[in-house]
């Protein structure tokens, strides 16, 4: 087995004989380069939305989606980002309990966002119903022309990132609970937090593009 696995223990360690600050700087740069590469994917989807939802004589259009559901899911994701920030800050000061609490809240909120999109907005079970006059379930389907195609590509790609983000948060939460991170060394926590905020940033841009910009078309 390699030297890397031979020296492996439950704590984060210096790999490849690099000093930890050098390794940390390289990790941060690598993750940001990954974000930039991912932005090409999300950027292409965004361009598709602005190109394909442009109707001659009408300008920008959008499918008629539940404004309440869009606002609610956006709020949930923003709050989850806040809890990830709190968790990361707590770990920076060595407060493991607060870190685990905050990351668990963030994971639950992330799951709520996912349920909001898949269960209510996509309406995978074909349900219908309202609360206080607000339609709970979406009607747009992937085969509903360019509206359905673009909407499901954008929300689907984003939901996939949310799902992987929740998985990462839970892995880091579990490792943190077992004492794998310290105030001085917690790249796993920082990297996961960065990833989750990135998923949040993508939604911050997608939300107006999907729900707010243009004339609603029924």
């Amino acid at each position: 087995m390699s030297a890397i696995t031979a020296h492996h223990d439950d704590h984060e360690h210096e790999g490849h004989d690099l000093p930890y600050p050098t390794q940390l700087k390289a990790n941060r740069l690598g993750l940001w380069l990954f974000f930039i590469s991912e932005f090409f994917l999300f950027g292409a989807l965004l361009l598709a939305r602005f190109y394909l939802w442009l109707e001659p004589g009408m300008g920008q259009t959008r499918p008629a989606l539940s404004q309440e559901m869009g606002f609610l899911t956006t709020a949930i994701l923003l709050i989850s980002s806040y809890f990830v920030y709190r968790g990361e800050t707590a770990m920076e000061f060595g407060e493991v309990k607060q870190f685990t609490r905050s990351f668990m809240v963030a994971a639950v909120l992330g799951a709520l966002f996912f349920v909001g999109v898949v269960f209510f907005e996509w309406n995978i079970f074909g349900l219908s119903g309202e609360v206080f006059g607000v339609e709970l379930f979406g009607h747009l389907k992937p085969w509903d022309g360019v509206y359905g195609g673009v909407f499901y590509m954008m929300t689907g790609m984003h939901a996939l990132h949310v799902l992987s983000g929740i998985f990462l948060i839970l892995v880091v939460w579990n490792r943190g609970r077992k004492g794998s991170f310290t105030a001085e060394r917690h790249w796993g926590v920082e990297g996961t937090a960065l990833y989750w905020h990135y998923v949040d940033v993508i939604w911050i841009i997608f939300y107006p593009a999907l729900y707010l910009i243009g004339t609603a078309v029924h």
């Binding site: 600050p21 920030y85 960065l194 841009i205």
Partner: peptide, 29 residues
């Protein structure tokens, strides 16, 4: 609407994602 969303994204990138750490010198946590 695009300006508002870019403003929100910038706040998250700066404060939550600590983007400024990228051009700082080598440091630990």
């Amino acid at each position: 609407l695009l300006i508002m969303s870019l403003l929100k994204a910038a706040v998250v990138v700066w404060v939550f994602m600590h983007v400024y750490r990228l051009w700082r010198g080598e440091e630990d946590h």
